[in-house]
Every structure is written in structure tokens, then in C-alpha cells.
């Protein structure tokens, strides 16, 4: 191959890789994959586009969706939150458990769960900022503690949500259930907060380079603290939604959620080291993970192969789209 030709090729490749990198940056890349997988499933299965399936898909996305939105704050701020799975599990168990069939209790219990979320986030954040312990270690600890508390409360299905409330969780606009609309509204608010507010700018700054943020006069501890509180509160909300939707507290709820949430964040193009990424990307990651599960069910792949296929899809998506710098 002549030198000139090789150079022209490498230039072209350079341009392609810039476009790729930019689309990862904007969170658009993962949405392209979402479209492709959705189109493929629609072609392969006649059930995919039915109202029932779409409604199902959106409903199943909630647990991961809320948790991943919160996780995005923790990751962008240069931390990580491994406790979201246990937090969600605790809330998913306690909500039906404490309501226990009494409709009047729903609102106070939900409020209590969110408060617990705030507290857990505060504990995580204070341990990270005051004791200067790595976020990975801190949240691994709270992960275990919350899990222990949840199992201490109950290791079997527990409690009950009144049927009328459970049913309302499945109603909405056409195939879109009301909780999903709430999710989208909250996600949009979170995206706005990250891109357009002073707080969001500082989250990116602290995650990008804590030293530089400090030089600029930013109270970096407060930002990390806030990000951890947001993360845990969203995790609590994820658990609450799960509890309300299923109507009964399940001790397996939230298992592995922290890993799915982090996967969604990374698939969305965020850097695990903080400071770069978009919330729309995370939402794309959530859609992708939910779609793959849904598609595997529809096509009738056995559970054993589901894990395998899911893993392969994730590795390929990450290999192609994750930032390489």
C-alpha cells in the first residue's frame, strides 16, 4: 500500500473516530444501538410492538431507571455508589411490609423511605469526604449493612399493598404507565440540573479534577455529599416503585442492581473516573439493558443463555462505544 493511500485511510479513520467519540460524549451512541436492537426485535417478534409488551417493558425499566439516574450523579462526581442495590432492596421490602394492606399508610411510608434514602446518602457522603475513604470501599460497606438489615427484616415475601394502588401503577397514557411518566419527568429534571445549573457544573468539575475544582473555590466535599444523597434517594425511590408495583415485598428485589446501574451509566458514555458523561446516555443504557432482556424473553431464549447473551451484548456495546481515552 502506498504511503499516500495509507495516510488517506488513516485520516478518514481519524474522522470516523472523532465522530464516534463525539456521539459517545453526547450520549447519542447508545441510542443508535437502542434503535437497532428495537428494530431487530420488532422484526423478529410480532408481540414486541403490542401495547401490552410496551407497557411491560416500561414498567420493568423503572427499578433500574431510577437507580441508574442516581448512580449517574455519583459517577459524574468522581465517586461510585455500590449501595444502590441494597438500598432499593430495603425500600422494596419495607414499603409493602410497613403499609401492610392499609392504604392510608402509603404516603407516610413512601416519605419515610425517601428519608431513609437521604440518610444513607448522607452517611456514604460523610464517610467519603470526612474520613477520606474511597467511595468504592465506603459504599461496599453500606451495601453489606443495608443488605443485612433487609434480610434481618424479612427473608421471605412480606406485606401487602392494596390492590387498587397496585393497579394504578399500571395505568397511564396509552401503553405508558404513570410511574414511567414520573420517571421520565424526573430524569429530564436531573438532566437539566446537570447541564444547566451551577450545582451540575460543579458535579462535573469535582469529578473531572477535584484539585482544580478546589482551586476554583468550589466546596468539593459538599458536592460529593450532595451527589451521594441524590444517588441513595433515587435508589430508595427505585425500591419504593418496585414495592408498589409488585404489591408485596420481595427479598430478592434489587439483587445485582448496583452492577446493572453502573453498566447503564457506562453504556451511556460516562467515564467511570468521573467528570464526563450525559444523563440521556444513561437513560439510553437503561433502555438497552431492558430491551435486551425483553427481546430474549420474547424470542424465548432460556434463562441460562439469557445471562450469556446479555453479557455478550454488553461487552460488544462497551467495546464499540466506551470512551477510549
Amino acid at each position: 500500500m502506498s504511503v499516500a493511500l495509507r495516510e488517506r485511510r488513516s485520516l478518514r479513520w481519524g474522522r470516523i473516530s472523532t465522530v464516534l467519540a463525539d456521539s459517545v460524549d453526547s450520549g447519542a451512541a447508545v441510542w443508535v444501538v437502542v434503535m437497532i436492537v428495537a428494530a431487530g426485535t420488532a422484526v423478529g417478534s410480532g408481540i414486541f410492538l403490542t401495547n401490552l409488551n410496551i407497557s411491560n417493558l416500561f414498567g420493568q425499566m423503572l427499578l433500574l431507571g431510577f437507580a441508574a439516574v442516581g448512580e449517574t450523579f455519583a459517577v459524574l462526581a468522581g465517586a461510585i455508589d455500590l449501595s444502590v442495590g441494597s438500598m432499593a432492596k430495603l425500600a422494596a421490602l419495607l414499603t409493602p411490609g410497613l403499609v401492610n394492606g392499609n392504604g392510608a399508610m402509603v404516603v407516610p411510608v413512601v416519605a419515610l423511605m425517601l428519608l431513609v434514602g437521604v440518610m444513607v446518602g448522607l452517611v456514604n457522603g460523610l464517610l467519603i469526604t470526612r474520613l477520606h475513604v474511597n467511595a468504592f470501599i465506603v459504599t461496599l460497606g453500606t451495601f453489606s449493612i443495608l443488605r443485612g438489615l433487609a434480610f434481618g427484616y424479612s427473608s421471605e415475601p412480606v406485606g401487602e399493598i392494596p390492590a387498587s394502588i397496585v393497579n394504578s401503577m399500571y395505568l397511564g397514557v396509552g401503553p405508558v404507565p404513570a410511574p414511567f411518566i414520573i420517571f421520565i419527568l424526573l430524569a429530564l429534571t436531573a438532566a437539566f440540573a446537570l447541564r444547566k445549573t451551577v450545582f451540575g457544573r460543579r458535579v462535573y468539575a469535582v469529578g473531572g479534577d477535584e484539585e482544580v475544582a478546589r482551586m476554583a473555590g468550589i466546596n468539593t466535599d459538599r458536592i460529593v455529599l450532595a451527589a451521594m444523597v441524590i444517588s441513595a434517594t433515587f435508589a430508595a425511590l427505585a425500591g419504593v416503585m418496585q414495592g408498589l408495583r409488585t404489591g408485596v415485598g420481595s427479598p430478592t428485589a434489587g439483587d445485582g442492581l448496583e452492577l446493572s446501574a453502573i453498566t447503564a451509566v457506562v453504556l451511556g458514555g460516562s467515564s467511570l473516573f468521573g467528570g464526563r458523561g450525559r444523563l440521556v446516555g444513561t437513560i439510553g443504557g437503561v433502555f438497552l439493558l431492558a430491551l435486551v432482556d425483553n427481546a430474549l424473553n420474547l424470542i424465548g431464549v432460556s434463562t441460562f443463555y439469557q445471562d450469556l447473551v446479555r453479557g455478550v451484548v454488553i461487552v460488544i456495546a462497551v467495546a464499540v462505544f466506551i470512551r477510549k481515552d
Binding site: 444547566k196 445549573t197 451551577v198 450545582f199 457544573r201 460543579r202 462535573y204 468539575a205 473531572g208 479534577d209 484539585e211 482544580v212 475544582a213 482551586m215 476554583a216 473555590g217 468550589i218 467528570g275 464526563r276
Partner: peptide
Amino acid sequence: YQEFTLLPHLSVTDNIWLGHEPARRGVL
């Protein structure tokens, strides 16, 4: 500072205002 203190992925404007961003009720 003698060191590099810009956030490489942030725009020039955003770097300049980092830490004391002009804002109205928290919105940039």
C-alpha cells in the same frame, strides 16, 4: 497557578467561570 488548572473537556467560558458561575436561582 503554575500548573495546568483547566478542565480539559469544559469549554473556555465554563472554565473561566468555574466556581463562581453567574446564575439566576441556580440556573446558569
